[in-house]
Design a protein around this nucleic acid. Sequence first.
DNA 1: CTTGACTCCCAAAACGTTTTGGAGAATCTT
DNA 2: AAGATTCTCCAAAACGTTTTGGGAGTCAAG
Lengths: 336, 336
Amino acid sequence: MANLKQLAQSLGLSITTVSRALDGYADVSAATRERVREAADKVGYRPNASARRLRRQRAELVAVTLPSDPGHIGPPHFLDMLSGCAEHLAAAGLNLVIAPVPRGESELDICRRFVDGRRVDAMLLVRTKRRDERVEFLQSRGIPFVTNGRTESLLPHPFIDGDGFAGFRAATLRFHATGHRRIGHIAGPQEYYFAHDRCCGWRAAMEECGLATDLCAEGAPLEQGGYLAALELLRQPSRPTALVCATDEMAIGALRALREVDGGNQISIVGHDDLPMGAFTSPPLSTMRMTGENLGASFASLLLRAIAGEPAEELQELHAIEFVDRDSHRRPLKAA
Amino acid sequence: MANLKQLAQSLGLSITTVSRALDGYADVSAATRERVREAADKVGYRPNASARRLRRQRAELVAVTLPSDPGHIGPPHFLDMLSGCAEHLAAAGLNLVIAPVPRGESELDICRRFVDGRRVDAMLLVRTKRRDERVEFLQSRGIPFVTNGRTESLLPHPFIDGDGFAGFRAATLRFHATGHRRIGHIAGPQEYYFAHDRCCGWRAAMEECGLATDLCAEGAPLEQGGYLAALELLRQPSRPTALVCATDEMAIGALRALREVDGGNQISIVGHDDLPMGAFTSPPLSTMRMTGENLGASFASLLLRAIAGEPAEELQELHAIEFVDRDSHRRPLKAA
DNA sequence: CTTGACTCCCAAAACGTTTTGGAGAATCTT
DNA sequence: AAGATTCTCCAAAACGTTTTGGGAGTCAAG
């Protein structure tokens, strides 16, 4: 209800003075400052956001684009991450808007709308593709952004990512060390960087061990995709004895395929993401997780630093992957 | 880069004319309108959002507050709903910002900040409590809002909700009809309307059948909560033969408890939410779901109509609950 | 020729803030 | 006591849009 003009009038002061008093400038006396603040509190004055944004030439907004393909948004706990990010951005006066991609438009259109309409100060990109047109566009426009996941872009850009290559290589080698030789991989869509990265890690390990890399099936990054991919691998003449799955959701789908085909308990399996759900599957799902806590806060911090103008090279976080030991990776290995 | 003034100058027209040409007013000739539009396209002109918002006295933003307790945000697919909502809001020129509640602040504080700072045109409230202070505040301020879930507020307000009472009553009666007599309920936190509603439905059915209502345990609306609650019920001298669970996540936790205690396959179980995951549990989880598709679009529509000033009474949607028949509700019932 | 209606355009006033560039009074310096 | 400095405060100019209230022309009817 109250704006600066009314507040100033009621105090017999100028708009300027009231504004500066509230912002804590030194060129207004302590006495007036107090008086202004009290009055503002009493009236419940809040500066009009639009007016400030216009004057300051800042949108006070960050947008995150959400792919519209179901399941391509990210793991179920993804909203928790966004929530954490939004919380920390809010502490710096920024709000997080979610920008899903409507049918018939590309993610690029969305970026364009937000950037060219000066609707945002920065953008957050999730589920990066190996070659990601959004990244190239934002780089050309020079607007700050951070991605969740690396890309193969030539120019460096800020990102947070897990070292999927190392994680999946290690998981595969772990199976090899316990005697497995036919280790399959259930891969996500290879245009996504994370899926490709994890697949490469598996393949690298297999090659290091002198094993064939044909036990690989690709599917959508959801339960159903993992289910179908697992069925495909189980149809092979010589079945895998262990499965490394790109995501926990795919692993849970694969678990069902195993139950259907051999009653379960024959084939070891490991996923990635550490879904809470994994502790409640049968058998409990061994998995991997990115180290580091409060991912959302890290994203917020990187976004703020990108807005502040820090160079991209200093805004790249590659986190190690750690193994989460439950039970599903430890099925008894029968002699081949 | 380009603003209206520059565009007007380059065309030798006034700002007014350019503005009105782009907005398609009739009082600018078709010829000029075309000329202006072409020029605007070429320069890639987009109106400055902050300026328009200030002038129009509209924030072009809707906020959704997210509870910060983990697991209290809603089911895992909740982000999909938000995404759908945001998509339809965007078609009307509104963006959806997510407003998590930081530590040390209440949900009320957040509402206050958004409303009093005139940062939003409307709000979306999720996980309503039976007596919800946010609802009361927004009603007192007269700002449009829609809730996901009913409340016990005396004044009517717009909402979308599932008829949990009817759904849980029906599920309980279904168990009774197939011979079950000891039917337990795993309840969510009773301060939430949805949890209380579902619990009441179960209790009503039990009383109709002349059965005792002591087989009820409450827990957090997550796998772990369901797990602990199920263990509690299984510790009773006479165990339940069937379990009606407030959410699928709780049901999945309960499934693990059943496996641990009696090897599973003894006790029938049903959840609510129709998580995709439910098709992949062992046994596949029978569940319930709210009828109606594209919930997000419904929320968006209600929000827009609330902003347009439609009375609350016309903006209330109570959806029927339908049963999703998988397998977990059909365990063999041994003679007691 | 006047009147009225219509077409096409524009100047100027908002919207509510922040910031610039002082102005006047009080205090300090010399 | 004059000049310099410091304290307080303020008028006015932005920021980029939309909208109000006309102002010229043109044309047809009276």
